[in-house]
Design a protein around this nucleic acid. Structure first.
Length: 424
RNA sequence: GGUGAGGUGGCCGAGUGGUCGAAGGCGCACGCCUGGAAAGUGUGUAACGGGAAACCGUUCGAGGGUUCGAAUCCCUCCCUCACCGCCA
């Protein structure tokens, strides 16, 4: 959530900045609503103040042994008037809250304008697209050729956009997650977490998936508002929800490997082939909770941690800065890492690293105690994939393929793969 | 799943209808004391919203209700702890 004070002070300027993100703020409407809210709030609070004063007076009178009946009679009308104002105020506040909680974060000054992923700006390229002296296959052909990637059976078990992995590919998938976790904990200083895969609606509100993006989520059929996590960012970031963290404890650096569940509503025609876009996929997620002055630098290091995995696996990739139109709801700035996929002759997203500054923190009321002032202040939160495990496996299959359809095992993974050299 | 006990400030903990945003303690901050420290001692110390400020309002797990007035009474839900049952 944006700082309401900021919007009140200059709604027009905020509206301009949000246009970069394709969000149209009705400035006049907002200001009218806000003006009414303020007026009603003042009236309500005046009534409340009077009621409190009089009630206190009744208490005193009673303690002094006076007759309080006439005083109570005097209060008769007040109650009704107050209730009315309160109800009126609540309607306005709900309306404002709905508006506020649906407003995206303001992009950083550096973020380029643009409509979609085609307008993202390449900031770095690592490695060269892998070349082959034979005709390359995509991961579907490779995986099915090995008899270890089975989409048909998965669709029997569940439906489309699921996959069944077998044998060495199931192991490769596990090895990748293992390798990522070990790297982030042992060399990058993250604390490993095991987290719930089901979260409540408050957590999803905290990180910004709700109320606006409910259709992207799998909701459980339960008495409570429970959802499958669309990313470990949700539980990992919400650890600090409604907490005041001591300044000395920052930064918090969490890493965890979880499945992620996304309904992929609205992407029916996209990436229907293979396991690029699934309803269930594994991801190793990095989350950092930092002091405000550290968050810009933290985005760079967090992104470099994700890049480190690609480099260790010797997978060619490029780093792009998302343009305004492609930027997520909560983010002020996002780097996507796109790995080279020979089967598609294209770079495809494998990691997304974002700084949300205080946007999620405000929704979550996640704060730290500032030593200098002694006052609580909002933390900044960041998250990034380090990396998407399924897509990393696709990249390994396609970049390490051999003419006979077998897959070389990347050097960094050998110890995790029982020291075999090739998957066949 | 059953039974019982609880959820109060950064933490512990008192408070069962009225000068309670809340005793006391810990912690923390600043001072006194000291060569310096510990101990001792004094003062201060919740968050959020509105406001330039004075000040006003809200908040005692969450949401409803009763009342002139609710931390305190009633209802629903959530969570924690203990014991029993069941289970990986």
């Amino acid at each position: 959530m944006l700082d309401p004070k900021l919007i009140r002070s200059d709604a027009q300027a905020i509206a301009e900045r949000l246009k970069i993100k394709k969000y149209e703020l009705d400035v006049a409407g907002f200001e009218a609503l806000e003006e009414r809210r303020k007026a009603i709030q003042v009236e309500t609070e005046t009534l409340q103040s009077e009621r409190n004063a009089r009630s206190k007076g009744i208490g005193k009178a009673k303690a002094a042994g006076e007759d309080i009946a006439p005083l109570i009679a005097e209060m008769d009308k007040m109650g009704a008037a107050l209730e009315e104002k309160k109800a009126e105020l609540k309607v306005l506040q709900d309306e404002l809250n709905a508006l506020l909680s649906g407003m995206p974060n303001i992009p950083d000054e550096e973020v380029p304008t643009g409509n979609d992923e085609n307008d993202n700006v390449e900031v770095a390229v690592w490695g060269e697209p892998t070349t082959f002296d034979f005709e390359v296959k995509d991961h579907v052909a490779l995986g099915e050729g090995l008899g270890k990637l089975d989409f048909e059976t998965a669709s029997k078990l569940t439906g489309s956009r699921f996959v069944l992995m077998r044998g060495a590919l199931a192991k490769l998938h596990r090895a990748l997650a293992q390798f990522m976790l070990d790297t982030h904990t042992e060399t990058n200083g993250y604390e490993e977490l095991y987290l719930p895969y089901i979260v409540n609606d408050e957590s999803l509100y905290g990180t910004g998936q709700l109320p606006k993006f409910a259709e992207d989520l799998f909701k459980l059929h339960a008495d409570r508002e429970f959802y499958l996590i669309p990313t470990a960012e949700v539980p990992a970031t919400n650890i600090v929800r409604n907490e005041i963290v001591e300044e000395a404890e920052l930064p918090l650096q969490f890493v965890c490997h979880t499945p992620c569940f996304r309904s992929e509503a609205g992407s029916y025609g996209r990436d229907v082939r293979g396991m690029i876009r699934q309803h269930q996929f594994d991801k190793v997620e990095l989350v950092q909770v930092v002091k405000p002055e550290d968050s810009d630098a933290a985005l760079e290091t967090l992104t470099s941690h994700a890049e480190g995995i690609l480099q260790a696996l010797e997978l060619p990739y490029r780093k792009v800065m998302l343009c305004g139109g492609d930027l997520g709801f909560s983010a002020v700035k996002t780097y996507d890492l796109e790995v080279w996929l020979p089967g598609q002759q294209a770079y495809r997203e494998i990691s997304s690293c974002s700084n949300t500054r205080d946007f999620q923190a405000r929704r979550m009321q996640a704060r730290y105690r500032d030593q200098a002032s002694g006052k609580p202040a909002l933390v900044h939160t960041l998250n990034g994939s380090g990396l998407a495990v399924g897509r990393t496996m696709i990249a390994v299959l396609e970049n390490y393929q051999q003419e006979d359809g077998s897959i070389k095992v990347p050097e960094a993974l050998k110890s995790y793969m029982g020291n075999i050299d090739v998957i066949r």
